[in-house]
Structure formats: C-alpha cells, structure tokens
Amino acid sequence: MSAVLKTVNLVKIYQDGAIPVPAVRGVDLQVEPGEFVAIMGPSGSGKSTLVHMLGGLDARTSGEIWLDGKRVDTLSESAWALLRRKKVGFVFQFFNLVANMTVGDNVELPALLAGVSPKVARERRESLLGALDLTDRADAAPAQLSGGEQQRVALARALANQPSLLLADEPTGNLDSRNTRDVLRLLGKVHKEGQSIVMVTHDARVAALADRVVSLFDGEVVDDGRIARRRRGTAGEVIDLR
C-alpha cells in the first residue's frame, strides 16, 4: 500500500524584510494509510507551518509533497483547492464555521462540494452530528454554540467528505476538559475506522491517541517513533499512590 502522505526535503523560508527566516528545514515525513501521527514541539518549531503546507494553505519554498501517490506541491492554487475538497479535512484551533449557515449545513456542505450525492451527504451529516452529541443543535447558528460545541462542529465538517487525510492544528487548544473528551472520543473512533490523521498538538491526551509522535525542533524532525501501549489494570494498579 502506498503512503497517504509523503514529503521529501520540505522547506519553508519566510522573508522578513531582507532577512530569510527558515521555519521548516528539510522535513521528510511519511504517513501510511490509517496512521495517526501527532506532531509536537515548542512554539516556533515549525509545526503549524508544516501542516499548513501539507494542506496547501501555505506554499512550500522547496521540496515535494505527495498525497495519495500524487505530487501536489506543484499544483496551481485552484487545482489544490479542488483536490483538498476531496482528499483533505482541516481543523484549526479557531473553528472558522460559516456564520450564516446552520450547524447541520456547515457539516453537510463539504460533502456536497466534493460531489457526493445529497442522500449520502445527509446520512453522513446525521451520523457525525450524532457521534458528537450535536443532533439537537443541527438547526442552530454557529454563534449560538459554545466554543466547545463549535469545535466539535468543525471536526464533523472536516470529516464530512471522508478525506484521505485529516489535518489538525491544535484542535483542542481552546476547549475545556469535557469538550476535549468528546473530541478525543470522536478522533479515537474515526482513527479506529481507518482515518489517517496528522495533528499538531500540545495536549498530551490527544497526542497519546496517536500511533506515532514526530517531534520538531527548529524546523527539523528530531524524533519520530511509535507510542508504546503497555499497562492494563485498574487505576490503583496503574497509578502509584504512596
């Protein structure tokens, strides 16, 4: 099976006046279908720049990006936009919902844009809203929802067209622990169902759901490895109470 995502020596250099500022310095990353990769690192390490490039939201300076076996970094902006509708879901820390559409329509829109039949788009909408406990909020406007609810809607929207790859940038950055738990539950569920995910996060609970953690430092990958799962047992056995 070929990688769902691959980058080759990916570089991003911002130009700050006359001074070039390297944000990402030669990242080689490969994500297999169904894999969940967490990207961690201090602020300024290039994490957000990296996922923005992966989603075509920021142009690379040099290097290659391959999505589902197709080279995408050389695509025009409009070709990228088209591909993104079908293949990439995106969740940010700030939810960017369409303000004058209902919650339900926000979730349904991407599937319709991607050319899915209205019947399938509707089914997908119902199932996602149900999974996120938002069914009775479907007719509300985004502004009527709490931050946590809006973020769950944003996640549902990102998943609506069953993208090959879900990209997320600090998706729980704004949420309290109860809302984080709901988002965690959905992420765990879609990952189990085979969703490939690349996610920038500081939240260890979210990162711990991943199969693999990639650590960035100064724009470079300094660690890339699997997260071991080990101990079973009750709270009293797992957590040392002295």
Partner: peptide
Amino acid sequence: NRQRRHYLSLMSDLND
C-alpha cells in the same frame, strides 16, 4: 525524546 515518548505511552495507558 525518549522521555517524551515514555510520558505519551503513560498517557495512552491513562486514556485507556
């Protein structure tokens, strides 16, 4: 790096 992975592995146990 090793310690980070270890902490995440502990966190994953706690999630479970």
